[in-house]
Amino acid sequence: MIKPTLLKILNKTYEANTFISLKFGHYDIDFRTDEIGRPVLLFIGKKMENGKIKGERYARRLATDHTGKIIKDHWDHKGSAS
């Protein structure tokens, strides 16, 4: 489960269609943004020598109505990342 302090970071808007790496406490996090700049794919854990994160992977489910208002926003755990 993603904690509220991490959700504060993930609810911000970043540069569109990019891959962003940050430190979060003692974890490394990498996430990919969509065409609007919202994080949609998250890797959290420890970064290995090859640059990949060994830990957990999450995918964001976003549903919007016809006006663009978000009606569903949920992070699904997708398993281990390596």
Rank of each mutant, 00 (worst) to 15 (best):
residue 52 K to T: 12
residue 15 E to V: 06
residue 65 D to E: 11
residue 63 A to H: 10
residue 81 A to D: 06
residue 71 I to D: 03
residue 2 I to Q: 04
residue 15 E to L: 10
residue 17 N to W: 05
residue 29 I to A: 02
residue 18 T to E: 14
residue 42 L to Q: 01
residue 15 E to D: 10
residue 21 S to C: 11
residue 10 L to Q: 01
residue 14 Y to C: 04
residue 15 E to W: 05
residue 10 L to S: 01
residue 53 I to Q: 01
residue 11 N to G: 08
residue 62 L to H: 01
residue 22 L to K: 13
residue 80 S to P: 06
residue 30 D to V: 05
residue 81 A to S: 15
residue 56 E to A: 08
residue 61 R to D: 15
residue 25 G to F: 04
residue 1 M to K: 09
residue 33 T to Y: 01
residue 11 N to Y: 07
residue 46 K to T: 10
residue 63 A to R: 14
residue 75 W to P: 01
residue 45 G to T: 04
residue 55 G to K: 00
residue 65 D to W: 13
residue 65 D to R: 14
residue 6 L to N: 06
residue 20 I to G: 02
residue 16 A to K: 14
residue 39 P to H: 04
residue 30 D to Y: 01
residue 72 K to Q: 12
residue 32 R to Q: 13
residue 64 T to V: 14
residue 66 H to R: 15
residue 67 T to F: 11
residue 12 K to R: 14
residue 13 T to R: 11
residue 23 K to V: 10
residue 49 E to R: 13
residue 41 L to I: 13
residue 35 E to N: 12
residue 78 K to Q: 09
residue 45 G to D: 03
residue 44 I to T: 02
residue 31 F to V: 05
residue 12 K to Y: 07
residue 45 G to Q: 02
residue 72 K to E: 09
residue 69 K to C: 05
residue 23 K to A: 12
residue 30 D to I: 05
residue 23 K to D: 14
residue 32 R to T: 12
residue 54 K to L: 08
residue 67 T to I: 12
residue 33 T to C: 06
residue 28 D to E: 11
residue 78 K to L: 13
residue 16 A to L: 07
residue 37 G to K: 03
residue 81 A to G: 09
residue 68 G to T: 09
residue 79 G to S: 02
residue 60 R to M: 03
residue 72 K to C: 07
residue 77 H to P: 06
residue 56 E to P: 04
residue 55 G to R: 02
residue 18 T to N: 10
residue 55 G to V: 04
residue 18 T to R: 13
residue 10 L to R: 00
residue 45 G to S: 03
residue 71 I to W: 07
residue 19 F to S: 14
residue 45 G to F: 00
residue 23 K to T: 10
residue 52 K to V: 10
residue 12 K to E: 10
residue 2 I to R: 03
residue 80 S to Q: 12
residue 80 S to F: 10
residue 71 I to A: 07
residue 66 H to M: 12
residue 28 D to M: 06
residue 52 K to E: 14
residue 28 D to K: 08
residue 16 A to G: 04
residue 73 D to V: 01
residue 54 K to H: 11
residue 13 T to L: 04
residue 22 L to S: 05
residue 7 L to G: 00
residue 1 M to P: 11
residue 53 I to W: 00
residue 1 M to N: 10
residue 20 I to R: 04
residue 40 V to S: 01
residue 29 I to T: 04
residue 75 W to Y: 02
residue 54 K to C: 08
residue 70 I to T: 12
residue 59 A to K: 14
residue 29 I to C: 05
residue 3 K to Q: 14
residue 35 E to W: 10
residue 4 P to R: 08
residue 2 I to G: 00
residue 7 L to V: 03
residue 5 T to W: 07
residue 41 L to P: 01
residue 9 I to R: 06
residue 52 K to M: 11
residue 68 G to H: 08
residue 63 A to E: 15
residue 64 T to P: 00
residue 43 F to Q: 09
residue 48 M to P: 05
residue 74 H to A: 09
residue 76 D to A: 11
